[in-house]
């Protein structure tokens, strides 16, 4: 893979929500999905083989401790290439940073079975495409006064609203503002979500990235974006309104 540093963002984001993960590897690429232990959030990632400069694999399930993986990825330097290599004999995943030389880390494989959890097929009335950093900043604003946030959409705008005991905050994205790429709204909708989870989910987003937000009434919110060719999908259960 071209850039170890970019892939680090993926591992960083996923590891804030999950402790361990099982990568399902086949000829077409790598997939993984899992719910967090409290069943509030779901993470799904897909690395098509095109995301790699070179890709050679057959069917394997690779269980990894994400804390250890994260530590290793934190050692990636900006011009390092990333090589992932399965050592079946020793039951390890070799993570190799290639630059002026090769730095190799071997991670123990965990005995995890591939999760049967897949992103459920939910039909959403509304899809918002927004610049990642704009959404991320709006969430950070919201966290000043509250630990949850209400996401609202109507045909003219997308709104991020937070209300504490005394103070309030609102980020308004009009349909034609520069942060909004597209706003497809079939019905006016709003749902409330825990901010800690949402902020964790967009951790890996940097300027230039675009987030697709699927929003309904009292439904889980679905977020989609990609980093370094890796497609990430997150689902977060709503709070009960009121």
């Amino acid at each position: 893979m071209e850039s170890a540093k970019e892939f680090k963002k993926v591992v960083d984001t996923v590891s804030t929500l999950l402790d361990e993960i099982c990568f399902e590897v086949d000829e077409e690429g790598i997939k993984a999905s899992a719910m967090d232990p409290s069943h509030v959030a779901l993470v799904s990632l897909e690395i098509p083989k095109l995301a790699f400069e070179e890709y050679e694999a057959d069917n394997h399930d690779i269980g990894i401790d994400l804390e250890a993986f994260k530590k290793v990825m934190n050692r990636a330097k900006s011009k390092d290439k990333l090589i992932l290599e399965l050592d079946e004999e020793r039951n390890k995943l070799n993570v190799i940073f290639e630059n002026t030389g090769k730095r190799k880390f071997s991670l123990a494989l965990l005995d995890l079975s591939a999760s049967s959890v897949k992103v459920p097929d939910i039909e959403y009335p509304n899809v918002i495409m927004i610049k990642g950093d704009a959404f991320k900043e709006a969430l950070k604003d919201a966290s000043l006064f509250s630990d949850y946030v209400v996401l609202k959409a109507d045909e003219n705008k997308f709104v991020v609203h937070a209300k504490g005991d005394l103070n309030e905050n609102e980020a308004i994205f009009e349909k034609d503002c520069s942060a909004i790429i597209s706003l497809e709204v079939k019905e006016e909708a709003k749902s409330a979500f825990n901010l800690d989870y949402l902020i964790d989910m967009v951790k890996g987003v940097s300027s230039g990235d675009i987030i697709k937000i699927y929003l309904g009434n009292d439904m889980p919110v679905k977020l989609e974006y990609s980093i370094a060719g890796v497609n990430l999908t997150f689902l977060l259960a709503p709070r009960i309104e009121g």
Partner: peptide, 11 residues
């Protein structure tokens, strides 16, 4: 207290 739902209902 948190009024937090789980994803279970959507599965």
């Amino acid at each position: 207290k948190t009024k937090q739902k789980t994803l279970d209902a959507w599965f």
